[in-house]
């Protein structure tokens, strides 16, 4: 699994990379200190996930996110910032981010957040959703468990496996047409799959869906390589 870390501060970048490698021994971490350098790596290396800082020299993270979403719509991007500003978080989600990790998180929570995002779970900061009842509260105080979280069971959510798959792509910010192409089905079939999802989650906007999905602790499984040919 390959991930790219774009952060201008070398010290923080190294630290996060070190922690990531320990959490996921099979992980390969690429590093870039500004967006353009990161973009060069994205264009040449298959990646599963990009962790993008918001305060960057030159092009900032939000502008970069917009650019990435248009060039590589299938690539998962999670934001990663020292700022935990509600408006900023929502703006990032609107622009297509899969999650938002605030660097101000307590130590264990930060490791858990990284693990969540790499397991394909939406992660959002406290400023947006308030404190959460941690599903694995029993582990608090202990170190983050090595390895990924198990993928959620669609039946437990009252969804069929296909609907769960569609939900996953929807969360990633794909439009109906793109989902149809991904799953090699008709667009109308996608719409049919979406109906029970909307009923289930009672949301209208993607940002609201992300919040719901996060609150329910749904895990979609490792992001696929999103910038392949």
């Amino acid at each position: 699994m390959n991930i790219l870390l774009i952060d201008d501060h070398f010290c923080a970048r190294e630290g996060v990379a070190c922690l990531l490698k320990q959490l996921f021994p099979d992980l390969q971490v690429f590093e870039a200190e500004n967006f353009d350098e990161g973009l060069a790596i994205i264009r040449t290396t298959p990646l599963n996930l990009v962790l993008l800082d918001i305060q960057l020299p030159g092009k900032d993270g939000l502008a970069g996110l917009t650019e990435l979403r248009s060039e590589f719509p299938n690539l998962c991007v999670a934001m990663f910032s020292g700022l935990d500003d509600r408006e900023l978080v929502f703006e990032a989600l609107r622009l297509g981010a899969m999650g938002f990790i605030a660097k101000t998180l307590p130590r264990q929570a930060f490791a858990l957040a990284l693990r969540d995002v790499l397991s394909g779970r939406v992660y959002l900061p406290v400023s947006v959703v308030g404190p959460q009842i941690a599903p694995d509260n029993g582990l608090s105080g202990a170190t983050a468990e090595v390895g990924v979280r198990p993928v959620s069971d669609p039946a437990g959510l009252g969804l069929t496996p296909r609907e769960f798959e569609v939900l996953g792509w929807l969360v990633q910010g794909l439009c109906n047409k793109e989902i149809a192409r991904k799953l090699r089905i008709e667009e109308q079939t996608v719409k049919n799959h979406l109906r029970p999802i909307f009923q289930k989650f009672a949301v209208v906007r993607r940002t609201e869906l992300l919040v719901k999905v996060f609150e329910m602790g749904i895990v979609f499984g490792r992001p696929e390589v999103g910038n392949g040919k």
């Binding site: 010290c11 923080a12 630290g15 996060v16 922690l19 320990q22 170190t143």
Partner: peptide
């Protein structure tokens, strides 16, 4: 930033 790095290393 350095604090973040410290946190990571300590984890």
């Amino acid at each position: 930033q350095p604090l973040q790095a410290l946190s990571c290393y300590s984890s």
